[in-house]
Every structure is written in structure tokens, then in C-alpha cells.
Design a protein around this nucleic acid. Structure first.
Lengths: 154, 154
DNA sequence: GGCGGGTGGTTGGGTTATGCAACCATAGAA
DNA sequence: TTCTATGGTTGCATAACCCAACCACCCGCC
């Protein structure tokens, strides 16, 4: 099979996945949208970061992230701490409640995933994850985002 | 690495991909949203299908698909042909214009993908695509969709 | 010390995508 | 025929986005 075909398959299947994941997330956890969940996950993984970092990483507008973050804060799942280095910056951290909810949803999602991935060899699973990471590590298509020296889009 | 960790990585990276793809799609092809593009792609691949099939496949609501389809028809990219077997059914087909646009966008997207996937061994590419297909082929998490004998969600 | 550009964040405004529920038409079984 | 299930459409409310305007702060430079 030609690589170009694989590229198309990748695009298509990724989209299918995304759509279903969104639907499933909304269905399973009305309290935590897929985006919110993802943001929380990112916070946990990064151990706290700025709103701008989130925006860059997910190719979202500042304002969108700002609102999402505000909602998460209102819900008591994260807190914003001023940065000592830079007064403009608000570093986002998970609260205990946030950590708890996140773990809960993660576990629930994981269970669902595990079910459908049950018959996958661990090796394939790892390789699949590696592929995704590798893919996303590259520059975003048609848009510059993320990265230490991310420049503003326009 | 534990499989559970890989499962989480997969979820997270898929989401990142989805977000960026959406952003990039909107930026590159204002005329054709990511969803529309995907629907067209599905039509081409399937050689015509019902709106319900699309909804099931992408875990979208009937109404959402109905509107998207209506928009695509207004844009002259698809046409709805009554099914001889079942008068309720409208089979969706790509028009010439639709086929053309689709090819155009596909090529453009493919170029972007190719760029970032340039240094991937063809073997990895194929395997990556296979993983995605295999993943999506399974039952949707938290929701039953698609499939010959798809039962209604609720 | 005071300016001016650049960056982090918020808010106002408007658009689009989506889901849910209600409704119509047709198919199929009782 | 009547009753139920299925394909589709439409009304309505909501959520998520993006863009642009704006405020606060950092930094280099006068």
C-alpha cells in the first residue's frame, strides 16, 4: 500500500476516533467535557502550566482556554496561582478535587478503552501510543503552535 | 511501560491530534469544515450511503448530519437520491463538484501530512494506519454505533 | 524615570456545531 | 388496518470557537 493511502487512512480514522471519543465523553461524564478532561490531564502531566501553554498545545484560541479555565476554577477543579517570576502569568494547578475527578474519569475511560483494547498485544499498544506521540510532536499542519518560542499566529 | 499507561497516552494524543486537525482544517479550507470533509470522504469511500449511516459511523446525532448534509447539498457537493427499495431513504452521492473539491482538499491535506510524516518509514506509517483502523473497528466506547445490526442507543 | 512594543489574560460579540425532543412519512408486522 | 420501528427534518437551547478590543505587566531603549 502506498504511503499516501496510509496518510489518508490515518486522517480518516483519527477523525472517526475523535468524533466518537467526544460523543462518548459527553455521554459518560456530563460533568467534564472532553476538552476539560484533556486540560486537566495536561495540567496533571505537566504539573502546572500557563493558559497560553494550553492554548498553544491544543491549537485553541486564548479566549477559549480562558473561559474553559474560568469554568474549571469555578468548579473548584483547578486554581490559578500568580507566578513569582512574572506578574502577568497565572500558573494553573490542579486542586485536590480536580485531581480526584480526573482520576475518576480517567479510570472510567480507561476501563472502556481497556475493554476494546483487551485483545491487543501490549507491544502493539505501546507502539500505537508511540506513533501518536511522535506524530503530535511534529509541527502542527498549517499552523504554528506550541514550542518554547511559539510565535503568535498572526 | 504498563498497557494502562499506553491507553492513556493514546487517549491524550488522539485528542491533541483532533484539536489540531480541526484548527488546521478550518484554517486551510474555510469552505469545507473538517466534518464536511470527512463526510464527503466517507461518501466517496462507501460509494453512497444514507444519512443514518453517517450518523452512526461518526457518533453524531441524526439532526446534525441532516443539517450538514443539507449544507453540502446546497453547496452542490452532494445529491440525495431516493432509494428504490425504501421510500424513506435518501441515498447520498457525491456530485462531480463534490468529488473535485474533495480531491482538492485531500491533496492539500495530504501534502501537509506528508511533510510531517516525511521521515516516517513506510512500514511505520502502514502500521500506524492499521492500528487506527483496528481500533475504530471495535465497538465504540460507551456507545453502540455502526455495524450491520446497530441497535438504537436509547 | 518614562516610552513603546510584545506577551499573558479577560471580556464582548457573533458564528457554528451539536444534542434533544417533537414531528412527518414510509416500512413492516400483527 | 393499526401499531410500532426507522429514516429524516425542524425548532430550540447550549456549548465551544474565533476574532477583536482591551487591560496589566515585562523589557529594552530613550
Amino acid at each position: 500500500m502506498k504511503p499516501a493511502d496510509d496518510v489518508e487512512r490515518i486522517q480518516r480514522e483519527m477523525t472517526v476516533f475523535a468524533r466518537r471519543a467526544r460523543a462518548a465523553a459527553g455521554r459518560m461524564h456530563p460533568e467534564l467535557s472532553l476538552v476539560s478532561y484533556t486540560l486537566l490531564g495536561h495540567l496533571e502531566e505537566s504539573g502546572g502550566c500557563r493558559a497560553t501553554d494550553l492554548a498553544a498545545h491544543y491549537a485553541l484560541d486564548k479566549s477559549t482556554v480562558s473561559r474553559q479555565v474560568a469554568a474549571l476554577e469555578r468548579a473548584g477543579l483547578i486554581e490559578r496561582r500568580p507566578d513569582a517570576e512574572d506578574q502577568r502569568v497565572l500558573v494553573l494547578h490542579l486542586t485536590e478535587a480536580g485531581r480526584r475527578i480526573l482520576a475518576q474519569v480517567t479510570e472510567s475511560r480507561r476501563a472502556a478503552f481497556r475493554e476494546r483494547l483487551a485483545d491487543w498485544p501490549a507491544e502493539d499498544l505501546a507502539r500505537f501510543a508511540d506513533y501518536l506521540v511522535r506524530y503530535n510532536a511534529g509541527p502542527a499542519p498549517g499552523r504554528h503552535d506550541q514550542g518554547p518560542t511559539a510565535r503568535t499566529p498572526d
